[in-house]
C-alpha cells in the first residue's frame, strides 16, 4: 500500500517538467523516508537524481519499499491535467501494474483520478561517490538560465572557470566568442539574489550547453542553483526543493583529446 498526499501539487508538476525531456523512463523508488529516482539520459552523458522526503508530504504511507517504472512523458501528460493549486495524491497497490494520480481542487469541489500503466525498466543505480569539490558556486537560478540560453546562441559548449576573481562562463562559435564573469556578490537585499563562490582550488571545465540548457528547466523549482565542480568529476547542478529534497543533474565534462 502506497499513498502520498502532496498539498503543493504544483511541485510535482514542476519536477516532471524539469526532467522529462532528459530522461524517457525511470524507476521511482518509494520507501518510508520518501521517494527517489536516479536515471541517465539515453546517451549516458547526464544523470538525474531526485529526492522528495516524506516530511514534505501532508500524508505519506509506504508499507514496504517498492519501485515503480514510469514513462516520464506519460506521467507529465497526466500531471498537466492537475491544476496548479490542486492537491496531488499518488496511490499504488502491491503487485499492481498501475499507479493512480488523484487531483483535488483546493475547495474540494473537483476530484479527478488518473490511472497510469507502469512499465518494467531495467536500470541499475550507479554509485555516486562522495566528493570534495574544488569549487562550489551558488547563484540565482534565473541568472544561470539566462547565461546558458545566451551562450547557446553563440556556441555549443561552455567553459566554466572558477578563480579568486569570480566565475567565468565562456563560449566560442562561428560568429565569435562570449565571456560572462560573475563576481561574488553577497551585498544584496535578498539572500537568493547572492552569488557565493566557495573555492578550494581554481577549476576550469568544458560542458555541452545543450545539457546545461535542459537542466535549467528546473529553474521554477528554486530561486538558487548550486554548481559544484572538480576536474575529474561530472559537474553537479543542484536545485533544492524547499523543505523536501532536491533535483540534481550530473553532467560528464568534455575533455581535450
Amino acid at each position: 500500500m502506497l499513498e502520498l498526499r502532496l498539498v503543493q501539487g504544483s511541485l510535482l508538476k514542476k519536477v516532471l517538467e524539469s526532467i522529462k525531456d532528459l530522461v524517457n523512463d525511470a524507476n521511482f523508488d518509494f520507501s518510508s523516508s520518501g521517494f527517489s529516482l536516479q536515471s541517465m539520459d539515453s546517451s549516458h552523458v547526464a544523470l538525474v537524481a531526485l529526492l522528495l522526503k516524506s516530511e514534505g508530504f501532508e500524508h505519506y504511507r509506504c508499507d514496504r519499499n517498492t519501485s515503480m517504472g514510469m514513462n516520464l512523458g506519460n506521467m507529465s501528460k497526466m500531471l498537466k491535467c492537475a491544476g496548479n493549486d490542486d492537491i496531488i495524491t499518488i496511490k499504488g497497490d502491491d503487485g499492481s501494474d498501475t499507479v493512480t494520480f488523484m487531483f483535488e481542487s483546493p475547495t474540494q469541489d473537483k476530484i479527478a483520478d488518473f490511472e497510469m500503466k507502469l512499465m518494467d525498466i531495467d536500470s541499475e543505480h550507479l554509485g555516486i561517490p562522495e566528493a570534495e569539490y574544488h569549487a562550489i558556486v551558488k547563484m540565482p537560478s534565473a541568472e544561470f538560465a539566462r547565461i546558458c540560453k545566451d551562450l547557446a546562441s553563440i556556441g555549443d559548449t561552455v567553459v566554466i572557470s572558477v578563480t579568486k576573481e569570480g566565475v567565468k562562463f565562456s563560449t566560442r562559435g562561428d560568429i565569435g566568442t562570449a565571456n560572462i564573469v560573475l563576481r561574488q556578490n553577497t551585498t544584496v537585499d535578498k539572500p537568493e539574489d547572492a552569488t557565493v563562490i566557495e573555492m578550494n582550488e581554481p577549476v576550469s571545465m568544458t560542458f555541452a550547453l545543450r545539457y546545461m540548457n535542459s537542466f535549467t528547466k528546473a529553474t521554477p523549482l528554486s530561486n538558487t542553483v548550486t554548481i559544484s565542480m572538480s576536474p575529474d568529476l561530472p559537474v553537479v547542478v543542484e536545485y533544492k526543493i524547499a523543505e523536501m529534497g532536491y533535483v540534481r543533474f550530473y553532467l560528464a565534462p568534455k575533455m581535450e583529446e
Binding site: V45, H125, G127, T206, A252, K254, M255, E256
Partner: peptide, 14 residues
C-alpha cells in the same frame, strides 16, 4: 577538439 565523456566513466555500476 574535445571529446564528450560518459557518466559511466566516473560513476560505477554496482
Amino acid at each position: 577538439m574535445s571529446r564528450q565523456k560518459s557518466i559511466l566513466s566516473f560513476f560505477q555500476k554496482p
